[in-house]
Design a binder for these strands. Sequence first.
DNA 1: GGATAACCGAGACGGTACGTCTTGTCTTAGG
DNA 2: CCTAAGACAAGACGTACCGTCTCGGTTATCC
Lengths: 231, 231, 231, 231
Amino acid sequence: MTKAPRKRAAPRATPRSGSGTGSGTGTSTGTSPRTRRSEASRQAILSAAFDLVGEVGYAKLSIEAIAARAGVGKQTIYRWWPSKGAVLFDAFLPVTEGPDGPRTEGDAAPGALPDTGDIEADLKRVLRKTVDELNDPRYDGPMRALTSEILHDPELAATYTERLDRPMKELKKTRLRAAQEAGQLAADIDLDAAADLVWGPLLSRWLLRSGPLTHAYADQLVHTALNGLRP
Amino acid sequence: MTKAPRKRAAPRATPRSGSGTGSGTGTSTGTSPRTRRSEASRQAILSAAFDLVGEVGYAKLSIEAIAARAGVGKQTIYRWWPSKGAVLFDAFLPVTEGPDGPRTEGDAAPGALPDTGDIEADLKRVLRKTVDELNDPRYDGPMRALTSEILHDPELAATYTERLDRPMKELKKTRLRAAQEAGQLAADIDLDAAADLVWGPLLSRWLLRSGPLTHAYADQLVHTALNGLRP
Amino acid sequence: MTKAPRKRAAPRATPRSGSGTGSGTGTSTGTSPRTRRSEASRQAILSAAFDLVGEVGYAKLSIEAIAARAGVGKQTIYRWWPSKGAVLFDAFLPVTEGPDGPRTEGDAAPGALPDTGDIEADLKRVLRKTVDELNDPRYDGPMRALTSEILHDPELAATYTERLDRPMKELKKTRLRAAQEAGQLAADIDLDAAADLVWGPLLSRWLLRSGPLTHAYADQLVHTALNGLRP
Amino acid sequence: MTKAPRKRAAPRATPRSGSGTGSGTGTSTGTSPRTRRSEASRQAILSAAFDLVGEVGYAKLSIEAIAARAGVGKQTIYRWWPSKGAVLFDAFLPVTEGPDGPRTEGDAAPGALPDTGDIEADLKRVLRKTVDELNDPRYDGPMRALTSEILHDPELAATYTERLDRPMKELKKTRLRAAQEAGQLAADIDLDAAADLVWGPLLSRWLLRSGPLTHAYADQLVHTALNGLRP
DNA sequence: GGATAACCGAGACGGTACGTCTTGTCTTAGG
DNA sequence: CCTAAGACAAGACGTACCGTCTCGGTTATCC
């Protein structure tokens, strides 16, 4: 009868924060005691999860399969992650923000969106890139899996928003603010709404497959968003 | 031993048809008196599925539970629907287009969107209504469930697009076209992109919970979409 | 919901007894209404049942499979037979008593066991023949199937005893009686027990596979039974 | 809710061993103390199986019911036994050879058949006892169930022969040999055939219900077997 | 010769059980 | 005390059959 759910947000642990319980031994020999979590196992799990979700899809992804593929006991997964979605989420991090920074939804660097001074051109460039990524099965599968989990798990959604979506949006808003300051965008618009206006339709179309995701569509979207629907 | 997946697409009536088809929604074309499918069972299954998905969520929804709740053998479900998602889809039809026509995503009648002559006011009214619906747990739960299934099942996505999304979009485009002809919208804009521009951001925000869904947001969205981002 | 069991002994139907339900009309015109049972279906069912039990064994034999193989509706089976065992039983009759009389357990003709005047030789001959039959997969499978059913169904057991076992035993006793009258057997022995003594061990060994069924064993059995265990 | 029997029961076998082996009955070969099989579950399953087969009969006995009654997951049964018959077989062992030795088919002790010096009297006594047991519904049901399974499963039959039938037969032969040495039986008879001659007819009659199982019949059988059919 | 009634094939129905799979917890050994 | 391994209770999966219950569609007597 599946006892207590024991919810936890996507956990971190590992050396970087010393979050865990493991101070224990105390007889500090000069070397930090750190946690006893096995980084090798963690990596193996994350990588197995990421591979598997691409191979069999999210629905057929099982914790058992991840454990088996990673050569790890199931408990080692349950010990550190509260849900399949949380594992997946962590598995995606190296992909999206990886060792070399954020990488998804259309920018090339850990840093800012491109700024050539021409906001329309820049947005088109970024959206085209996003379109390409969303059309790439290598990203499409896992991303759908993550999105699916987010759909059902508000807590995970919050983490996602905080950890991935908000930083991304900040980058977008930074570029839009620059355009605004350059007089290319109206001074009174809300940048949040503006970013939504540009990326929202793309995301919807991708998720629901309500139409083809093409460069032409990206261009059209940018154009229409910039100029508005009025004459 | 659950062997091969045995995929099949299209057809109509008769057992094991494509995903969203089993119902026929009463559009009796005078067709052959085929099939002795029990309408009572069909209704019971659909209604049980709809209720349950609201109670326990999609992930915990089981065919067994639907069958039990509906007082029906499991086989009667498997006989007529290929997947949980297909059942759910049919279960939603009565809600969204029901006996008295489409009902979701912001219009009051089987018919058109409101047209007072003021496109901005009308769109705001419609989007506010949509916002209310998406905030209503009565719709939020099942809709997320369906969306989740659509996310992973391109075939179901196609059915959804065809049966629900496209008709809805036609209504939206009809209203926009009227506005266009009244000179309230630019003559050269693509109505598809226009509709996406207005509803896409709302949908994204709802799905990913990337921000609060309020009337204010609806108003802002409409305003920004109409006037564009440029000065 | 498995309603009422509605027990019936192995049915016969067809003109001879008018066993079925068909009396109905009651306006007896003097002429018997008879049944309208399809003899073709009956034969097809019996033959399908016999074939199938040999192919898949008794445990995996299903009424549905019989009906499908026979090209017959399930109801046609349920209408005329109360159980799988009953079908099987009828299916065996043509084999064992067939159009040309009883045939099992070691006699060559509808009639009597061989009588050359030498009871020991005759019994050995008959038992060797029985051994051959029991070793023949063509008989072994179906016979085990029938026996299994008899094991669990006292009513079927009674029918079996009455219809197959008793006639057979009469033949055996007839031969033994002849030997008794010829002075080859003691005058005071009970012929029933005598028949059991000879055939019982063979049957047990066959059913439980407690040892090899060979001609040598048959010979030994006859010899020991005739001479007894005492010095 | 089998809480905390954290006993360390003597280890047993490994998963999915041969049919009748799960018990091991302590014939430890010095092998590694492998497997952490739960002895409590094993006992609960065996006892539930034995009870249920007596209550509902073999045909209606289901693994699910056994699991439910035993408070055990189905997999725990499938993990350790290959078939319903194998479970039943193990369930019978405690009855027939139990903690205090073999007990079935007519002897009172783990040890030998009674030996008063009078072989006829002793055999009659033993057979009468067997008759009583076979007439006792407490044994009749389960035994028929086991026999039925043996009928169809040669492998189980082999196990049965090896584990139950052969030891029993040895006891019988031991008593017969004693009689032979005492000059009460002929020196040249085969003891195997002799044992078959005495017990075989009884077994046949019981299985096929071809006649009443009475003390008189037991006596008659012994008498006829001893003295033979000849004058 | 038309009515009528039982039989027939077909197969949907509410169910039970199957044997497999996965979940999340718990136990055992080893480092 | 973490780990790999894996047994365990629980229960859903999708399939196979059960025995019952309509459906139309033949027959095949009866009036």
